[in-house]
Write a protein that binds this DNA or RNA. Structure first.
Length: 597
RNA sequence: GGGGUCGUGGUGCAGCUGGUUCAGCACGUCUGCCUGUCACGCAGAAGGUCGCGGGUUCGAAUCCCGUCGACCCCGCCA
């Protein structure tokens, strides 16, 4: 072992003793005579001192050293001289008088400095990820990641859960996200799929009597990336038998509280707020509202549709809604600031936005002539509008208006500093619809997934009005980010078949895709349910990072590439032949898109 | 598939109403000086076909078209 201590852990306890340290040159300061080197490892830095009068040879080596050289040194731990103590360092009271030094490996000049406060393009950071990960902040992130995984295992183990691994090479399931396919060499023309989640297998484990299962599971979805979406990500996946919604909610609250308490020292105040899907959509325009701040949405369709403003009337008549929010005290906004807000909602897909300022107790704007005094008074009441407020209104189809207002609400929350960034506000969203209407396919889709149990009291609507049915599902939301969701599952063949039928899956397709699960349901399947939540997202929020990439060691860019390794890349002809795959040019465009046959 | 922002020495940025204060600033690198600094300091130096291709023009980092890439968003993500 080339060290007796970690750099950041040398302190007054070793005073007068010889220590053996290894690490990187964080910074070096040559004063012509004395040289200081801050030696760094994952625990922190310690100051090495080289004095030419006490050891000329060692001093000469120190002179040749540069940033990120890897050193091994021996030296005596000494008190720093009066007045030179550095309170910002854990090792700031001591320094090492070096008696021997070996350069284990030099380093080229760096593409960027190994510091927390760098401002470097993400592309460059990912290309040199090994350097990026040397930064203390990154180590802190991954230390936290380790800790959280450990705490999850610890908590669930204490609750009697069994961690079971499920296969990465699995079966394609056309429902849901696009699959990553893996060709089978020994079965020409056939493909595995990487799992989008271990959903069916964890249910199978319930049928097998494992009773309480969990897994910190890798999941894969071949969809376009976002700041909070990577093609491969990690889920804390949980399933239990003989339970109701309340059991999962209680377990999850206990787990999350345990993790926050032991990883961050924070009490997060379980039980969490609960709201229904309907209330969430109504008040915030989203099924994952950020409850760190208020700024609720107000539906004024019934009031505003009667105004002489044709746009409102026609949208309301076509089944749209007129909805808005009250930006308190924003009546001082300039025309340009308001125009910027309008531009902002347009990028979200809104066609426009109306606004009113409250001036002299009245609603004033370029549109006010279209609104009678009576309507304006009612609108003010609805928005609880006071002098100096700014009312912003969007009229559109419900989904479009809600989406734009949700973004606007969050945008204003940031802009007006309404959000306490130190807070962690959790909530449960309940009473989800079982189905969502798929306009493109002109049929219903499972809103959650097709294994979600309907509420028993809604069974009567299965044939006639599936859109009315509610699911036994629950989503966990933290600070406006969906952390995870789950449900009580269907556990009988009959209801599962009804479900498939409702979303347009034929008996044949069901048998081909999910046949084993349907069969298994007939061999004594216990009622069961579970939850899955994103470990990466949880960490992103705990660490207050803006991107998943800062909590994933080797993440992908928005084009799903790895700048470090260059993946994905072309395969050798022989590999393709073994896999019975031929890459051909797509006939359509003259670009280099290819397809596999 | 669509929209937005961006691309200038190793890194981050300025310049972008076209023309020797237009190739500049900061950090980094290199050389020299400096015995108590800790983002040490001081002096000097090297380093860029301004993402790539085409066009307009007497002249393009600057204007136009295309293309590639990064990031953010929409679609998509049960």
């Amino acid at each position: 072992m080339l060290r007796s201590n970690y750099c950041g852990e040398v302190n007054l306890k070793q005073l007068g003793q010889e220590v053996n340290l290894s690490g990187w040159v964080n910074t070096w300061r040559d004063h012509g005579g004395v040289i200081f080197i801050d030696l760094r490892d994952r625990t922190g830095v310690v100051q090495l001192v080289f004095n030419p009068t006490t050891n000329k040879e060692v001093h000469a080596v120190a002179q040749s050293v540069r940033d990120e050289y890897v050193l091994n040194i021996k030296g005596i731990v000494e008190h720093r001289p009066e007045g030179t103590v550095n309170k910002n360092l854990s090792t700031g009271e001591i320094e090492i008088k070096v008696s021997s030094i070996e350069i284990l490996n030099p380093s080229k000049a760096l593409p960027f400095q190994i510091r927390d406060d760098i401002n470097v393009a993400e592309e460059v950071r990912l290309q040199y990820r090994y350097l990026d990960l040397r930064r203390p902040k990154m180590f802190k992130n991954f230390n936290m990641r380790h800790k959280v995984s450990f705490l999850v295992r610890d908590y669930l183990d204490k609750q009697g859960f069994l961690e079971v691994e499920t296969p990465i090479l699995f079966k394609t399931t056309p429902e849901g996200a696009r699959d990553y396919l893996v060709p089978s060499r020994v079965n020409p023309g056939e493909f595995y799929a990487l799992p989008q989640s271990p959903q069916m297998l964890k249910q199978t484990l319930m049928i097998s009597g494992f009773d309480k299962y969990f897994q910190i599971a890798k999941c894969f979805r071949d969809e376009d990336l976002r700041a909070d979406r990577q093609p491969e990500f990690t889920q804390i996946d949980i399933e239990m038998s003989y339970i109701s919604e309340e059991d999962i909610i209680t377990l999850t609250e206990g787990l999350v509280s345990y993790v926050f308490k032991n990883a961050l020292g924070r009490d997060i105040g379980a039980p969490f707020t609960r709201l229904t899907y309907e209330a969430a959509m109504d008040q915030y325009g989203t099924d994952k509202p950020d409850l760190r701040f208020a700024l609720p949405l107000v539906n004024i369709t019934e009031i505003a549709k009667n105004a002489e403003y044709k746009i409102f009337a026609s949208i309301a008549a076509a089944g749209g809604i007129i909805k808005g929010l009250n930006a308190k005290k924003c009546g001082t906004f300039s025309r340009m600031e308001i125009d910027n807000l309008i531009e902002f909602v347009k990028t979200i897909g809104a066609k426009g936005m109306s606004w009113f300022k409250v001036e002299n107790g009245k609603l004033e704007s370029n549109l006010s002539k279209f609104f009678s005094e009576e309507i304006k008074t009612e609108m003010m009441k609805a928005f609880k509008a006071e002098e100096g407020d700014l009312i912003l209104i969007i009229a559109d189809k419900p989904a479009g208006a809600n989406q734009a207002l949700d973004h606007l609400r969050r945008h204003l929350g940031e802009k007006l500093s309404l959000i306490d960034k130190d807070k962690f506000v959790f909530e449960w969203v309940l009473e989800f619809p079982l189905f969502g209407w798929n306009e493109e396919e002109k049929r219903f889709d499972a809103m959650h997934h097709p294994f979600t149990s309907p509420k028993p009291e809604d069974m009567q609507y299965f044939d006639k009005e599936p859109g009315k049915m509610k699911a036994r599902a629950y989503d966990l939301v933290l600070n406006g980010t969906e952390l995870g969701g789950g449900s009580i599952r269907i556990h009988t063949r009959k209801i599962q078949e009804m479900m498939f039928k409702a979303i347009g899956i034929t008996d044949e397709q069901a048998k081909d895709r999910f046949g084993f699960l349907l069969d298994a349901f007939e061999f004594g399947t216990p009622p069961h349910g579970g939850i899955a939540f994103g470990l990466d997202r949880l960490l992103m929020l705990m660490l207050k990072e803006g991107s998943l990439r800062d909590v994933i060691a080797f993440p992908k860019t928005q084009k799903a590439q790895c700048p470090l390794s260059g993946a994905p890349s072309f395969a050798e002809e022989k590999q393709l032949r073994d896999l019975h795959i031929k890459v051909v040019e797509l006939p359509k465009k003259e670009d280099k898109n290819t397809e596999q046959v």
